[in-house]
Simulated assay, not measured.
Amino acid sequence: MSNFSLSPLFRRSIGFDRLNDLFDYAMQSDTPNYPLYNIEKTGEHNYRIVVATSGFNPEQLEIKLENQVLTITGKSVEEKSDTSVEFLHKGIADRSFKLSLRLDEHIEVQRADYEHGLLKIDLQRIIPEEKLPRHIPIGRKGNELLDSPKTE
């Protein structure tokens, strides 16, 4: 019997569980594996996406948020290759990328920083007051029952 891991389902979503969308996405065979990235929970309502973007400078990177989909794009600058160099192994990726992550409706992008080849995007869950849990009293209001008809 083989083990089945659901962790691939949660790599692409932050802050919510929409299992149907996640299963559909996980079943796609063209899931990108470049660039490498982490999704971190830094507090009760705070998250951070860290994308390894070595070889890119901030001018080559673009972050867009549209319809709750955060898209991070890196555009590689085509440099003329040195014809006197012969690669015995070329493991450093130097290609453009597009990484899309679906965000929950209450997740907001707070800021983005670029340092030491890592793009860091801070997110925060901001829940509107009407969506917060509230205490519902049971039974009495003063000495009277709630919703009980008054008798005269």
Rank of each mutant, 00 (worst) to 15 (best):
P32C: 08
Y37D: 00
S29Y: 12
E129I: 06
L132G: 01
R12F: 15
P133N: 02
R95L: 09
G142W: 09
V50R: 08
K120D: 06
H45D: 03
K41M: 03
L65F: 05
S100P: 07
E115R: 10
G43E: 00
Y114G: 06
D94K: 15
I126F: 07
L103K: 02
R11P: 03
L70P: 04
L101H: 07
L88S: 05
S13Y: 15
L119I: 09
A52P: 01
I39A: 00
L22S: 10
G74P: 03
H45A: 01
E40R: 07
Q124M: 00
E108W: 00
G91Y: 11
E108H: 01
T42E: 00
I92A: 05
P35R: 03
A26V: 12
K90E: 15
V77F: 09
L146D: 08
L146C: 09
D82N: 13
A93H: 07
I63M: 03
R102N: 04
S100D: 10
S100N: 10
D122V: 02
E62Y: 02
G55F: 09
A26M: 11
N46F: 01
S54E: 13
A112K: 07
H45Y: 04
P137E: 08
N20R: 06
L146N: 04
E62S: 11
T73P: 00
L145Y: 14
E59I: 14
K141Q: 13
K131E: 04
G117V: 10
S29W: 12
I92T: 14
L36Y: 03
L123V: 06
P149T: 12
L101N: 05
K150S: 12
N57I: 09
K141N: 06
E59Y: 14
P32V: 15
E79I: 13
T151V: 11
S76F: 11
T73L: 11
L61K: 03
G55A: 06
S96D: 14
S76K: 14
L70M: 08
V85D: 03
H45I: 01
R102C: 01
P35C: 02
K80C: 06
Y114W: 10
